[in-house]
Design a protein around this nucleic acid. Structure first.
Length: 965
RNA sequence: GCGCAAGUGGUGGAAUGGCAGACACGCGGCACUUAGGAUGCCGUGCCCUCGGGCGUGCGGGUUCAAGUCCCGCCUUGCGCACCA
């Protein structure tokens, strides 16, 4: 009946794919040898280059994968497989980021324990990914929820907790500033080398006093500070997890500022290095820029303005100290700590304008009312109220140090406590915000930079120009440009003791605790005085207890007055412990820390565990870390001259959504571990590639409800108009966006395996376009990739008999040339992650082979090897049928014969005045003179150059451009 | 508002300053078929008086030659957003 029983159908593809997946597993094909540690196989490492390829750490979602998820995994797999065929020792594997909010929320929804649902989700995801044929080292699969894993997460926390940042420490790269053990700081305090902050003897201080001082230095510390409290999630969040609109990134709930005692990570100590070292890694500029913006380093000056009639001064940060002479008033944030003491106690001073008082009888009342009003505003309200300037006069004046002018001090919420010093000198002439405020409150404006020609009279001028109105008895900036004026005035301020050049950052310390159940417990206990103690390494891991009630206490999302309540605090038998911490104090009563770590903790270092997952002695054997991640001999392209290579993962592929979250946190942890001597590399991700997303169309009916995208029919519009979409006969609107359940446009990889097979799916995803671009999913287009693989199959296997049909014959010259050109191009494309163009080349070669009566063995074997990284199963199957016993995973990738890359004859394009007018076949090695002569003799050229020739451009052998007179 | 990308057929996309549209989808035709939503082959930027003309968001410029380089504008996407 069936005339083509051996056709490469989805069914046959499925059989082949599963069989090869079993073989790879059985043979341990993708096990990568380590130089040291428990899995040491130094003899297999010797003499090979290494390559460490990494995907972003996935969390096992209950919804399973959709076709967008595997895009990056396929890309890294193709790259890894290609490099394996060039002889490299390639490490590629995947683990699971299984703690955290999504896993917990899913568990809450389904009413089951998070561990159970998480493990089930991991099983499902592993099945989906295995069916894709990824060449992962499956021995190295890890999960953050595994106690053997989070033991090391806790160990790293202790390393950070037991460290401080010494800005004077010399680094091996010549820079200054590094993490050092806190014990060394204690020693400095104890032997008097470093005075304690309050000047008292270290040994005379109580344990609590010592503890409080050390908290001011530790890289992980607790502090009582305003944090982002999200009642809807029942937890606090880091700044990075809060959106511009003041809502939680996950769940979009309102977030409120609350003063709470929380764990923080002193990432600000690393601000400079995190910003500077971006120059040493190969990342997209866009992502580097996002990190630089987030760190927000700006050069400027701190200037002190003495408060008139008080023994106090207001410090401001400014990036424009050159404009000091134009400072006509000052503004402090409503939360500024000095505010209460500087507000004048009596009536409004003489000259107070009505607009400054906010309608209050005294400055004290006005400021109190304004503070209250500001404190009641949520972040959301600040946003929605727009940028209307509000504020009141404090009644106080401060002295401008450059000219002795007494300027009024205002309180206004356009100045933020969280940046700089929380106070500014206002220079309306050179700052738009200050201009607005000055105009609204009738304050003087003095230009101190000459505006450019044609600049509007009624606007601030923020550009460069010569300084004006900027002199006193000692100094004059007049005539200087902005840069020179800045350095001149800073030198003067420093000499007079009025201020100093300084740097300010937008980056804040990282809030590290969460009031959730499903996360790593802190290895911290509190004694009866409330002082924190590290749990000794020997007692790790501190296990997450099984509890009957793991769900977090959540609140009305708008209930700002609610307080977090960690689920672990409801387990007294776990919280209350008696321990001997080995610190000489013997067995004591302690209370465990009941907060848990954020899910970033486990994902901050997982790539390190991949290197040595079975190691029980260390998080990674130093030799393994140095082998896989150590610095290269030469820095990345574009790095400043003379810098050291930081090392790190050779290729990291993932979405840009983690540009300032995971990618910044991981860099910070990595640098701490580097400083403490645990890692030779100084950056985690040497090269990062930001992949695009696969999106899909979604359709809404007349009521705006989403309808199943798979059931929508498309019909051509009349007279070439736009196509019309309909669902069950009714017209629907098309939208473009994310793939998701709520949009009813999910396509799962399982459906693709079923309908086409994994290889076809892989080729389609890689062939759709460049990896960095987002593109729409189109199921009906997948068939093109299937046709390609079918033709490839047919070139080797007879569809009717199943016999191999290649012939033992030499290649004809044309085929040989196409083959070698393809080899040349495809190799370069793979190395450059240009998989879409590699596929196009392979299709062209395959189509050329299809036109032959029979395919010579050499061509068949080479195209099979070249296809193997993309479509490994069909390639293995054909390779095997061609008579090879072993996997082609390590078969050498074909090499192009350079002599085959040059054509004997070339089509030369003949242009007249830059337009193509003719073509001639010429020998590839034709001389310029011969070619010029031939072209000028062509009838069309002769006709066009009746009036003579102005010039002839010859680019032998491909192009001649004749320009007639 | 500030900053960064990107604009190429009906669609996804190719093109070291040198033949614009590789490859694929879709569409049209043909073959094979009881059948085709299978498979194969051919065609497919637009206009045309079949000579050719016009074409890479718009307007200028550099060049013998511009999708590519430069200037200005428009549009879209992304990031930041009272950051002093």
């Amino acid at each position: 009946m069936n005339e083509t029983p051996h056709r490469y159908t989805a069914e046959l593809a499925g059989q082949i794919e599963v069989a090869w997946q079993d073989r790879w597993q059985e043979w341990g094909t993708f096990h990568a040898p380590n130089p040291a540690g428990p899995w040491a196989e130094p003899e297999k490492v010797a003499g090979r280059e290494k390559l460490l390829v990494l995907d972003m750490f996935p969390y096992p979602s209950g919804a399973g994968l959709h076709v967008g998820h595997p895009l990056g995994y396929i890309a890294t797999d193709v790259f890894a497989r290609y490099n394996r065929m060039t002889g490299k020792n390639v490490l590629h594997c995947l683990g699971y980021d299984a703690f955290g909010l999504p896993a917990e929320q899913y568990a809450v929804q389904t009413g089951q324990h998070p561990r159970k649902t998480t493990e089930e989700n991991m099983v499902n995801m592993k099945r989906q990914l295995r069916r894709l044929g990824l060449g992962h080292d499956d021995r190295r699969t890890i999960a953050t929820i595994d106690p053997d894993y989070y033991r090391w997460t806790q160990w790293i926390f202790l390393q950070i907790y037991n460290s401080w940042y010494d800005p004077e420490a010399e680094r091996e790269d010549g820079g200054r500033g590094a993490a050092r053990p806190i014990a060394e700081l204690v020693e400095q305090f104890a032997n008097g080398e470093r005075p304690t902050p309050n000047g008292r003897d270290w040994v005379a201080l109580s344990a609590s006093e010592q503890s409080a001082i050390l908290d001011g230095y530790r890289l992980a510390y607790t502090s009582e500070a305003p944090v982002n409290w999200c009642p809807g999630l029942g937890t606090v969040l880091s700044n990075e997890e809060v959106t511009n609109e003041g809502r939680s990134e996950r769940g979009n709930y309102p977030v409120f500022k609350r003063n709470l005692r929380q764990w923080m990570m002193r990432i600000t100590a690393y601000a400079d290095r995190l910003a500077d070292d971006l120059d040493r890694v190969d990342w997209p500029e866009k992502v580097k820029l996002m990190q630089r913006n987030w760190i927000g380093r700006s050069q400027g000056a701190r200037v002190s303005f003495p408060v008139v009639g008080q023994d106090a001064s207001i410090d401001v940060f400014t990036t424009r100290p050159d404009t000091l002479f134009g400072a006509t008033f000052m503004v402090v944030a409503p939360e500024h700590p000095l505010l209460d003491s500087i507000v004048s106690q009596g009536d409004w001073p003489a000259g107070t304008k009505e607009a400054w008082t906010g309608g209050a009888a005294t400055p004290k009342e006005a400021v109190a009312a304004y503070q209250l009003q500001a404190s009641r505003k949520s972040e959301v309200e600040r946003q929605t109220e727009g940028k209307d300037k509000t504020g009141v006069f404090t009644g106080a004046f401060a002295t401008n140090p450059v000219n002795g002018e007494q300027v009024p001090v205002f309180v206004a919420d356009y100045v933020l406590m969280g940046y700089g010093t929380g106070a500014i000198m206002a220079v309306p002439a050179q700052d738009n915000r200050d201009w607005e405020y000055a105009t609204k409150f009738e304050l003087p404006i003095i230009r101190t930079v000459q505006p450019a020609e044609g600049h509007p009279e009624d606007e601030a001028y923020t550009g460069d120009g010569p300084a004006i109105n900027s002199s006193n008895d000692e100094i004059s900036l007049d005539g200087m440009g902005v840069a020179e004026a800045k350095s001149t005035i800073i030198a003067w301020l420093e000499a007079k003791g009025f201020g100093e050049g300084t740097v300010s950052y937008k980056l804040r310390d990282w809030l590290f605790s969460r009031q959730r159940y499903w996360g790593e417990p802190f290895p911290i206990v509190f004694d009866e005085e409330g002082n924190a103690h590290a749990v000794p390494e020997s007692m790790l891991p501190v296990s997450l207890p099984d509890v009957p009630d793991y769900s977090p206490k959540t609140f009305d999302p708008d209930d700002a007055a609610s307080s977090p309540e960690p689920p672990l605090s409801r387990v007294p038998e776990w919280v209350e412990v008696e321990l001997d911490l080995g610190d000489g104090r013997g067995v004591q009563k302690y209370r465990r820390e009941t907060n848990t770590m954020p899910n970033w903790a486990g994902s901050c270092w997982y790539y390190l565990r991949y290197l040595d997952p079975a190691n029980t002695e260390a998080l990674v054997d130093p030799e393994n870390e140095a082998y896989w991640m150590g610095p290269h001999a030469t820095p990345v392209a574009g790095a400043p001259a003379g810098v050291q290579d930081p090392g790190g993962v050779d290729l990291y592929v993932g979405g840009v959504e983690h540009a300032v979250l995971h990618l910044l946190y991981a860099r910070f942890w990595h640098k701490v571990l580097h400083d403490l001597g645990h890692l030779s590399s100084d950056e985690p991700f040497r090269k990062y590639f930001s992949q695009g997303y696969i999106q899909a169309y979604a359709y809404t009916d007349e009521r705006g409800q989403y309808v199943p995208a798979a059931e929508v029919e498309e019909t051509a519009g009349e007279y070439g108009g736009d196509p019309i979409y309909s669902w069950r006969g009714q017209p629907v609107n098309r939208e473009y966006g994310k793939i998701g359940k709520s949009l009813k446009n999910v396509v799962s990889p399982d459906e693709m395996y079923e309908a086409y097979g994994a290889d076809t799916f892989r080729v389609y995803e890689m062939g759709m376009g460049p990896l960095e671009l987002s593109r729409p999913w189109e199921t009906r287009a997948v068939v093109g990739s299937q046709r390609f693989l079918q033709r490839l199959w047919r070139n080797v296997v007879d569809e009717e008999t199943g016999e191999v049909r290649v012939v033992e014959a030499p290649l004809d010259a044309d085929t040989a040339r196409v083959l070698h050109k393809t080899i040349d191009a495809v190799g370069r494309d793979y190395a450059a992650l240009s998989f879409n163009t590699a596929i196009a080349r392979l299709i062209e070669l395959n189509n050329a082979l299809t036109k032959l009566d029979a395919v010579p063995r050499e061509a068949a074997e080479k195209i099979v090897l070249m296809v193997a990284p993309l479509a490994p199963h069909i390639a293995e199957e054909l390779w095997s049928r061609l008579g090879h016993d072993e996997t082609l995973a390590f078969a050498p990738f074909p090499k192009a014969d350079a002599s085959m890359l040059v054509e004997e004859t070339v089509t030369c394009v003949v242009q007249i005045k830059g337009k193509v007018r003719d073509r001639i076949e010429v020998p590839a090695d034709i001389s310029e003179d011969d070619l010029r002569e031939q072209v000028l003799a062509l009838p069309k050229v002769v006709a066009a150059t009746e009036n003579g020739v102005r010039t002839v451009i010859v680019r032998a052998p491909k192009l001649v451009n004749v320009v007639p007179a």
